[in-house]
Design a protein around this nucleic acid. Structure first.
Lengths: 216, 216
DNA sequence: TTATTTATGATAGTAATACTATTATTTAAA
DNA sequence: TTTAAATAATAGTATTACTATCATAAATAA
């Protein structure tokens, strides 16, 4: 994790881990706009000042947990496609990974991956859609996202070395896996998926989009 | 315009038109997070209470100006594709329309379309990425966006009546025309476009994506 | 063991934001 | 010309987003 995101490393103490855990819970439940350090402190049983010793402001905390997700997806991608040779199968794995509402991984006690995935759907783009995106970018806040798009882009190029837009297609897959899910659940007429809350339709759409795009 | 978005119709008075004009200016210049009714009032030369007589809160004002854009795009789409028969040419027009940083249309004195386009790029998704999206949707706030995606979806179906995801592809075009532009300018390594600020690359990418997707 | 650093808790306080309310004054419609 | 409506001016409240201070508890070093 990028140390510029925090003041004190939340992984290194119980209070820190509680801040992460309860932030994910609260942002998941009420959205980022309604999320305040005061509510967070109350939920943990500490004080506002206690939270401020870990994070400068709520935006950096949001970027922290979203970075955590980017890194976790990168790990899952490496892990799940490790012994797969066919890049098409790899790409399908990634589409499914990004589109599917994952199970909570119990090995990461203070992070609920299922809730994090929901946060990415509703709040993910707020990490960068700010007027200080340039400053944040200079501090490398988005490096894990860039690494992820590079990795996906490499697999796209393995499928078709002549394809001209591997990075744009990678970011399109990432963003659309989340946005089409949001639309499906809240503005279904912007999609062709009934409010079945079934992600398999989104996967089919993205596979159709991607594999038609990259075929020679 | 949906009357639930405002308290008093801003089109019906000079003050109202000033609220729209200066809102677009301020949100364009400093972003939506930094935008407050106090700053807006100061910029106009009225008082905070004056603004609150027109809009309940800054979110509804944002949705108002974004709705204005959706409606304007719909109008431009109808106008520009009116006497075109070939649906492929129509679709290209739409992609170009959504991707291009338009000129300010001087016939709409209080709305600067060029600035509005920039606002859509940076703030567009904040219209619906809220925890009250369901409530807003019940009040039909997103009807112009749905109408637009339907219209684009119809043209997609004209190109290929068997294509299975016309609405999802329409919302993908709309969102990606904006998001790839944002990435190009602020996080270029998420794209394959150099920071040339040249939208023609985005148009080529989207045309490639769309026409490969819908070809039979 | 004691001394000392370090993290946390408790409390207070400030500036800005997001509003609501009241009254006076100007403008426009009946 | 009366009356209603819109606006300006001012004040005030609750919440948010912080900063600062001091006491205490826990961990660590001498």
């Amino acid at each position: 994790m990028n140390p510029s995101l925090y003041i004190r490393d939340p992984e290194q103490s119980e209070l820190g881990k509680n801040i992460i855990k309860h932030s994910i819970q609260l942002i998941h439940d009420n959205g980022f706009e309604a999320f305040t350090f005061k509510k967070l402190a109350e939920s943990i049983g500490t004080t506002e000042a206690g939270v401020y010793r870990y994070f400068e402001n709520k935006h950096k905390l949001l970027v922290y947990i979203i970075s955590w997700y980017w890194g976790w997806i990168q790990f899952q991608l490496n892990y799940q496609t490790n012994n797969i040779k066919d890049p098409i199968v790899k790409l399908k794995k990634i589409i499914t990974l990004l589109s599917t509402n994952v199970e909570d991984d119990i090995t990461t006690g203070h992070v609920d991956e299922a809730q994090l995935h929901q946060i990415l759907i509703s709040e993910g783009s707020k990490a960068y859609l700010t007027n200080h995106v340039g400053k944040d970018n200079k501090q490398q806040f988005f490096q894990p996202y860039k690494d992820l798009c590079n990795a996906i882009g490499d697999i796209i190029l393995e499928c078709n070395p002549k394809y001209k837009y591997p990075h744009s297609l990678a970011s399109t897959i990432f963003e659309m896996a989340h946005l089409q899910n949001f639309f499906m659940n809240h503005l279904p007429s912007l999609t062709d998926f009934s409010k079945s809350k079934n992600e398999s339709d989104i996967i089919k759409y993205l596979e159709d989009l991607v594999f038609k795009s990259i075929r020679e």
